[in-house]
Every structure is written in structure tokens, then in C-alpha cells.
Design a protein around this nucleic acid. Structure first.
Lengths: 346, 346
DNA sequence: CAACATATGGCAACTTCTTGCCGGGCCCGT
DNA sequence: ACGGGCCCGGCAAGAAGTTGCCATATGTTG
């Protein structure tokens, strides 16, 4: 009376084999198959090998989803970046990716296009699937971040949110190096070209530069804020030319590059008329003419450190919420900085 | 003797609510809750609303994994790129990302670091979790790709594999435009700087360039292969200087940029001594001095087209395996090309 | 050789959600 | 007024694994 499905031997409709199929073929119970894969040692070595052979013959592969359900471990991490097309994120992505892969984790990438709404939606969607989150250049408020961090282990990058572990670059020593370099070249006055107001990093960079310049150092001035893009740099260039200083430090490389372009486009020479320093050493900093002197951040390391800490937390370590994890910076000297023009060196 | 866990009422250990909790609180059965969320219309509007309210109060959220298990739909796509730090991929990633998100899909990114072994492992791991795959710049053999394509819907980028849908840029018209441009500037002889031998794109570019140059066109020569990186470009520059031609077309922008750097570093002028054209218009092509003339590919569109087709296939459309989907290219004229030096124009 | 410890496999319950089928209540047509 | 359909909610059987607990078989020890 019931509909009779002929399902025997239809090759087109074979679904992928399960542990039950393997179990039957190997003459053991499904639980033994399960253990043969997920609990090495728990099952007799010979039995295990036989099971693996049978499984291989059948083309069996564990469905991670089904495994994840009972144990609650998806082996996935979310990496949320504000802009996947910003070279700043490239190495972070790869660093995170590598560290995750090495630990058997898969990364789920979300590009939020600089929008905190999109960012929230992305989190909404990915959060239940992942075990942990890395937030790079988040555009959300501290409090939203803290709320989210309660639901899953989280690490934020280049930003400090109390109560949430973070990875930042050593801005302080980077700033000092930049100032020392400039001073060594005879500059006694420089301009800081500020990035977005909401950026934690921007505030820090300005603060540390001022700090480093205190005392015997050069005088500092600040213009901005400007959007941290090439276009922002062009804007900044115009502003700078109205009140020039012989040296300028930009919030980031993109801004610095845009700025240099504008200056050179208006007949100024870099570094003869203006010495320019950026931050981050992104792809492109060494391509422009002249090559950009910049405070390099080991972006790859930022990504891998973040994932490393996240994984540690997932394995029971206490999240480091007191002080941020800091990765070292270094000054890369290229051609965009030179001796102060009013004092032509021999 | 055993450690006593007090777990009652411990707020830290509450697991997230399930449809059962919601069902109980709302006084309906779990299946009704399930339907209230996944089968709109199937359940009475008032009941549905009540359920949603209760669910919201409880902070319930569907666990996509658990949903995926019975229906076999994970709403995830894998995007496999050869090198996540290559600017070539940035816009592809974002294009894919956007298209996927718009359709409610999440993308899982895998960086294979130019290794076909890593690529295979990445596929191994991600394949069972995703509904479809986009392969950008795969380093695997055609046959391996075909085998994988049997397991999941797949689209390959910038490569044609018979039997597998693909998205490619319009190389032929791009090549023609490049040649016409060069000819218009008076060049009657140029060098093609080849990329990796295994690259399908490289073969095509060379073929189409030669084709476009046939007849009244300029004479063409080919050097290489070189790795498609800045360093490869430096190498290529050395080779070119041994047997110069006034114009050169490089496999991609990275190579072109490296090449220009080498030439300029050795006292040659671009475009006065050498006109240089690249392919792709990656980030950085407009940054270098002189700005690089290049055959631009709408990389964002490549990514979104690929995902678009993939989603169509998942929704039952027939995969387009006969002819590749092609996106248009255009020539972006910048400062790296100029009139042939032996014929100084007024 | 008996008593106990250990290794190994099986049973069945559990993870969260979906869905085919069933049935009670209500409305409608005749 | 009564039978036939709809509408809507519930039951229970999956989807593919994991794992606590138990039952053997085997090994070890006194």
C-alpha cells in the first residue's frame, strides 16, 4: 500500500557513506567506528586499522558538522575585517589563516565594508557557527564589543577594549624611533596627519609622538582628521601646503602615500622639501617613489598572535584582559625622509 | 572524593536555549517552533508571533549547524585562493563575499600559499562543510579539479577546465587593446614577459597578444617564464636589458612593477626608453612612478559573478560548462607607456 | 587457580533541528 | 445537518555523529 521506492543499486542517488555503512562493512558497531577516528588508542590498533581501510575503500569521510553538533566544537573561527581590500589586512588575514590551519581550525572571513551595521549582521550570522572571533579594525562601540565577547572568546586587533584581550603594535617605541630618525636628520618641527577620529590607534599614535617629542625633541603639530585612504592623503597634502613643516608623520601608509602624491604633483620634492613617514609598512609602501619610510608593524604576526591567543583560551587558558599583547615595531628607512632642507648637509 | 560541580543555577554555565525551551515557554510543540522560523505561513500568524516573542525574550537563536544536519544545507561557500596577500585577490575576495552575503551565505576562506598540497588539504577540510566552491588561481591539475568538482558544485576563476564552469576575463580584447595602444605610439616590436608556465592565463595572454600582433602589427618576442612577483619582475628586467625592445607587456602588474623598478634603478627611463604594460590593474599599479598602464580586469565582478553562478547552480540551474563566463577588460592608460623613442614626436 | 584489573567493543541516549504524516477543529457547500 | 476539505498543531523518525556506562574477553597477580 505504501509507495515502494526502488533504491537498490541506483548509482546516481548514492549518498555519501556514514559511520553506519562503515560499521556494517567492517563488522563492528558504529560507536567503534566513531572512536577509531576520534579517540585514538581507545580502540584496538588492528581493529582501528581495519576500520580505516574499510572506510577508505568506501570513500567515507567524517562530516564535521555532524561531529560538531554533539560536542559543540565546530573547529571554525571568524575573522572580521573592516575592509578586505585594504592592504593593511592582507598579512593579518594570512597570519590568522596560517595559525588557524596549523591547529586544525578553519577561518570564516567576513568583510564589513567599514559599516558597524554590516559588522553586527556578520557577527549575528557567523557567531553561532564559530568557536571564537578575531575582530580586526572593528567599527563597533566598545560596549557592543564587550557584549559580543561574552558570547564567544574574542580577540580584538589594534584596539584596546577593557575586558577583552587584544593585540596591538608597539606604538610607543615606534613613535620614538620615528622621532629620533627625524631629529637625527635635523628636523625640529613636524606635522602629524591624523586619521579617523574614532580610531583608537590614531589617538595612541598622536599621543606617543607628542610624548616622544617632549623635552629636547622637535615641536609637533597636528592636522586632520582625514579618512585613512589615498584620497584622504590628497586632502591632507593640500592642508599641509598651507602651513608647511619640513617633516610629516602620517597616521598610516595610505594617507602618507596619498599625501606624497599630492605634494609631488604640486612640484614639491620628497624628501628635499618634505620628509614623510607612515605607519604599518603595507604592500605599496616600497613601491611608491620615493619609497616610503615607515614604522613597520609585523602584520602577519598580529594575525597569528591573535589566533594563537584565541586558541589558547579555547583550550582553557585564562584570557589576557589586563594588558594587551604587543608585537614589536621597527622603522624602515626608505627614500621619503632626508636631511632638513634649510641645513644642506655636505 | 570526586570534584563536586555545583551546576544548578550557575549563570556562567547556562547553555543557549533550544527550540524545546522556546516550545515549553510558549506552550507549543517544538515542531511548531521550528516551523515558525523556517516555514513562514505554515503556522498561524498569531501563534508565530507569540513564538517569536518568547524566543526573543529567551535570547533564542537558531543554531545553523543543527539546521544544516537534517537538510544538508550549510549556507557556506568555500573560497580558495592561491595567495591571500596578493593584491590580485583582494577584490575577488570582496566580490565573492558580497555576493554570498547578499544571498545569505557565509564564505570560508582558504589560502593555499601557492601549494597544490596545501590546496588539496584545504579542500579536504572545507569541502564537507560547504555547499559549493570557488577556486581562484588553483595550482592543482585539471584532473584533480574535475574530480573535486564532482563532489560539489564548483566554479574556477581565470582558468578553463573542461567540464567545470569558469569565469575568465576577456583576454582577447584586452590583448588587442594593448597592442593597438602600443602601435598607436609607434612601437613596432615588443617583448612579452611570461608568468608561470603552469598558468592557463599566461598561455592565453601570450597567445592572444601574438594573435593581435599578427598581420600589420608589431613583432613580438617572449622571455621567461618568471615567477609572477616583484622579484620575478626584477629578474625579467635584467633579461630584458640584455636584448631590449622599446615596448614590453608583462604577464601581470606585479611583474611589470618589478620590471620597471629594475629598469629605472639602472638608469633607464620609463616610458622614454621602455614602454611597459601590465595586466589586472591591481592596487599599486597607480601608485608606482610612473603609473602603470595596464589591462584592467574587473576583479570584483569576477568574484561576484563566480559566486552568482555557483548559487544559481545550487538552486538548480544547469552549470555552464561549455563556454566560460567572461567579464570585460579595458585598457587603463597611465604614464608607463609613451611614444617610441627613436621617433621623438613633436 | 581464583580474584581482580585492564583492554576493547556494544548499547542506547543525546546534540538541535526538520519534516512526513496524522488528526482534531472549523468552515463551507449542498 | 452532514460530509469533505483546509488549516494548523503534534508525534515521531530521522540527519551523522559522540560518549557514559556496561559486558565481555583477556591478562595479571597472589
Amino acid at each position: 500500500m505504501s509507495g515502494e521506492d526502488s533504491e537498490d543499486g541506483d548509482p546516481a542517488e548514492r549518498r555519501s557513506p556514514t559511520i553506519y555503512d562503515v560499521a556494517e562493512a567492517a563488522g563492528v558497531s558504529p560507536s567503534t567506528v566513531s572512536r577509531a577516528f576520534s579517540r585514538p588508542g581507545r580502540v584496538n590498533a588492528r581493529t582501528a586499522e581495519r576500520i580505516r581501510d574499510v572506510a577508505h575503500d568506501l570513500g567515507y569521510r567524517v562530516v564535521p558538522l555532524a561531529r560538531a553538533l554533539p560536542v559543540g566544537r565546530t573547529s571554525m573561527l571568524a575573522l572580521v575585517v573592516a575592509d578586505a581590500t585594504n592592504p593593511f589586512h592582507f598579512d593579518i588575514i594570512r597570519g590568522a589563516q596560517d595559525a588557524a590551519t596549523k591547529a586544525g581550525y578553519t577561518v570564516l572571513l567576513a568583510d564589513t565594508r567599514e559599516s558597524d551595521l554590516v559588522e553586527r549582521q556578520a557577527l549575528e550570522r557567523t557567531l553561532p557557527m564559530v568557536e571564537g572571533i578575531v575582530l580586526a579594525s572593528s567599527r563597533m562601540s566598545d560596549s557592543t564589543i564587550r557584549v559580543t565577547a561574552k558570547q564567544r572568546p574574542m580577540v580584538v586587533l589594534n584596539r584596546v577594549v577593557t575586558g577583552v584581550p587584544s593585540v596591538v603594535t608597539d606604538i610607543s617605541s615606534g613613535a620614538r624611533r620615528a622621532i629620533d630618525h627625524l631629529r637625527g636628520l635635523g628636523h625640529d618641527r613636524f606635522t602629524y596627519v591624523a586619521g579617523p577620529e574614532a580610531s583608537w590607534t590614531d589617538g595612541m599614535r598622536w599621543r606617543e609622538l607628542r610624548e616622544a617629542a617632549r623635552g629636547a625633541g622637535p615641536k609637533v603639530r597636528r592636522i586632520g582628521p582625514f579618512p585613512p585612504t589615498l584620497e584622504g592623503g590628497v586632502e591632507a597634502g593640500r592642508a599641509l601646503r598651507r602651513e608647511p613643516t619640513s617633516a610629516v608623520v602620517a597616521y598610516n601608509d595610505l594617507l602618507a602615500i596619498g599625501l606624497m602624491g599630492e605634494l609631488i604633483g604640486h612640484g614639491h620634492r620628497v624628501p628635499d622639501d618634505f620628509s614623510v613617514i607612515g605607519f604599518d609598512d603595507i604592500f605599496g609602501a616600497q613601491l611608491v617613489t620615493p619609497g616610503l619610510t615607515t614604522v613597520a608593524a609585523p602584520l602577519y604576526q598580529v594575525g597569528s598572535t591573535a589566533v594563537g591567543h584565541l586558541l589558547a583560551v579555547l583550550n582553557g587558558a585564562r584570557p589576557q584582559t589586563e594588558t594587551p599583547l604587543v608585537v614589536p615595531t621597527s622603522l624602515i628607512r626608505r627614500r621619503s625622509t632626508g636631511p632638513h632642507g634649510t641645513d644642506p648637509v655636505a
